[in-house]
Structures are given as structure tokens and as C-alpha cells.
Simulated scan of single mutants.
Amino acid sequence: MRARAAGLALGFAADRMFGDPARFHPVAGFGLMARDVERQVYRNHRTMGLAYTSVLVGGVATAGLLAERVVAGRPVMRTLLTAATTWTALGGRSLSQEATYVRAWLDADNLPEARQQLTHLVGRDPSNLDQQEISRAVVESVAENTSDAVVAPLLAGAVGGVAGIAAYRAANTLDAMVGHRSPRYREFGWASARLDDVLNLVPARVSALLAAVLAPVVGGRPEAALRTWTRDARRHPSPNAGPVEAAFAGALGVQLGGTNVYGERVEHRPTLGDGPVALPTDIDRSVRLADAVGLGALAVSVVVALKRRR
């Protein structure tokens, strides 16, 4: 398991140094394949959606298992395989960069460009958002995606190795593609959405706990983050985004939540936290907290990997 732990650490370092692979990204390739399969098998009911999710996620997990068997008994190769898989699954550096780009446009008083840049982070309609609403959207995205794109893949790797990372990333990608509540995907994407919910139950709460413990990094108080998490998380429509966003709100001392527009659909979400609305300066603070949470998750994942016997 030392090879697994070392691979996770190397993959994390690669993500922080290089970001996403510039070309031939495996996750992008999986997304293209999933889209092609969807065109062939799409039916507007849950049974076909379940088969679609099972085959794609199961196929990726099987490929990961086979790859680990090929390098069994060769610790260096297993370390490198784990590192490469971890690197392609993580999105911490890209998340931080996108948030920083939005902040730069806000500093330049260029709302049109800030709104356009925001589309790289969130699915909501940014066309009428002001500076504060853009800042809130960025902080919410940084919180949620730190759990989805950093903490969860690391924990999946610690428990399941290469197969675990690959299966988690496949499920998370399918959720982003077909797991939303549009008329087309309400039934077909149900299985993908529920699988992603299940796989993120533990990582989301680990993320929230780390955000609370590490609140002093951004001048916050752990007790305030814990109080906001336990009080407000259930208000969020997502069982996993709720704890993370509430813990970040408490740690940063800001208020998140409110009205979000997704095309023709409008969501009025309850607020999380007691502080003032988020400002552009809170984007930088959220990135610092997210980076700290990522390091904390790496430490936890390495310990978990080393404690496992096989």
C-alpha cells in the first residue's frame, strides 16, 4: 500500500504543478465516448439509464483493476500508474485558476468578462449577476468542487486504488452530463445522479470537517463553521453540496445561497451562514481554504491507504 500512498501524493503534486493535461485528457475522452453511447441507447426511462451508468462506470472500473494487475509486484510501476490516474482525476489547480480569473475581471470592473468566465465554473445563467452575486457563485463552486474534484478522488484512490479513482471520476462525469433535472434527463439520468450522491456522501462530510478545522487559515473559527454546517446544511437541495457550502460559509464568515437561474428554471435556495454577502476578496479566501482542504484530504488519504492491507 506504500505504492498506492506514494502514487496519490505524486498525482496530487502533479495536479498542483501542471493542472489538467493539455491534450488527450482521459476524462474528456470518456465524456466523448459516453456521449456517443448515449446517442445510441437513449430512452426516457430509468431502466435504460441504469444500464447506461452501470456499463460505463463498471467498464472503467474493470479497466482500472486490470491495469493494476498488470503492474502487480512492481511497486514503481504501480506508483506511477496510481500517480497518473490521480493526476487526471483531480481538478484542484484548474478550479483555483478559474476562480482567480473571475476575480481578476471583477478587479478590472469588467462584468461582462467576469460573467463569461463564470460559465467555466457554474451552470447557472450569469447574464444578470452583479459583482456580489458573481462572487457568491464562485465561492459556492469552489466549495462544492473542492469536494467533488479533489477530496473525493483522493479518498476513492485510498480505498479502491486505480479502479476506485477511475470509477468515481466516471460516475462524477456522467452526473455532470446527464444527472441534472432537465426534461430529457430526469429519468434517464436518475441512476447517474443517485450513484454520484452515494459516492460523495463520505467525501462531502470529510470536506466539510476539514473546512471547519482549517478555518483559521482564512481568519475563521472552527466552531462557527461547525455550527453553520450542522444548522444550515439540510436547507440545501443537494445532500452533499449542502455540508461543504455551509462549512465554507461558516469558515469564511459569509452568507451563501439565494436565487439561481438555470435557463428557464429558477431556484430560490435558503441562505447558508450568518455573515455578509460574499465579495471579490472572499474569492481569494475561498481558494486559500480550498487549497488547505486539499492538502488535508491528501494527508487523510495517505493514512487510509497505508492502513489498508491489500
Rank of each mutant, 00 (worst) to 15 (best):
L90D: 05
L56R: 02
S182L: 04
G31T: 02
A67D: 02
L111T: 05
A208R: 03
A149V: 02
A143M: 01
V122L: 08
V41K: 04
L199V: 07
P222K: 10
G242Y: 10
A211R: 02
P237K: 06
G161N: 01
D148P: 00
R285M: 09
A305H: 07
V76N: 10
N200W: 03
G160E: 00
A83H: 08
P26H: 02
A163L: 05
V37P: 11
A215H: 07
A191Q: 04
E38Y: 14
L155H: 07
G275Q: 01
V217F: 00
R186F: 13
S207D: 03
A292T: 05
H268D: 14
P112Y: 09
V142M: 09
R43G: 04
D20R: 06
E140C: 07
T173Q: 09
P75I: 05
G31E: 11
P216R: 06
P21H: 00
P270W: 00
D148Y: 09
Q117M: 13
N44R: 14
E144Y: 04
A158N: 04
L32A: 15
L214S: 03
E133D: 15
D109E: 15
V254K: 01
L256W: 02
A61N: 08
V178Q: 07
V266T: 13
V162D: 01
P183Y: 01
I134M: 13
E264R: 13
E38G: 13
L65A: 11
M48I: 11
T47H: 15
Q132K: 14
G296F: 05
A249W: 11
A193D: 06
L214F: 08
Y262R: 03
L50V: 10
T100W: 12
G258I: 12
A83Q: 06
F30C: 08
T85C: 15
T85N: 07
V303W: 08
N200D: 01
L50Q: 09
I165L: 11
D282A: 01
G160S: 01
D196A: 10
E68F: 08
E140W: 10
Y52M: 04
A305Q: 01
S135A: 14
Y262Q: 00
A137S: 15
A224F: 03
R227G: 04
E267D: 13
L81E: 06
A176V: 00
R288C: 07
E267I: 09
L129E: 05
L80G: 00
E98H: 15
P112K: 11
T47G: 15
V71E: 11
E68D: 12
H120R: 15
T82Q: 14
L56P: 10
T119I: 12
H25M: 06
V139R: 03
G157H: 01
W229Y: 06
M17K: 12
N260F: 12
V41W: 09
A166W: 08
G59W: 00
M33H: 13
A83T: 02
A83Y: 08
P183S: 07
A156Q: 02
E113S: 13
R93V: 10
V244P: 00
W190F: 12
V261N: 10
G19K: 04
G250T: 02
Y185K: 03
A28I: 14
R308V: 08
E144T: 10
H180D: 04
V151M: 04
A211I: 02
G11M: 00
Y42H: 15
R184L: 07
L209R: 15
I165K: 00
R227S: 13
V266C: 03
V217C: 07
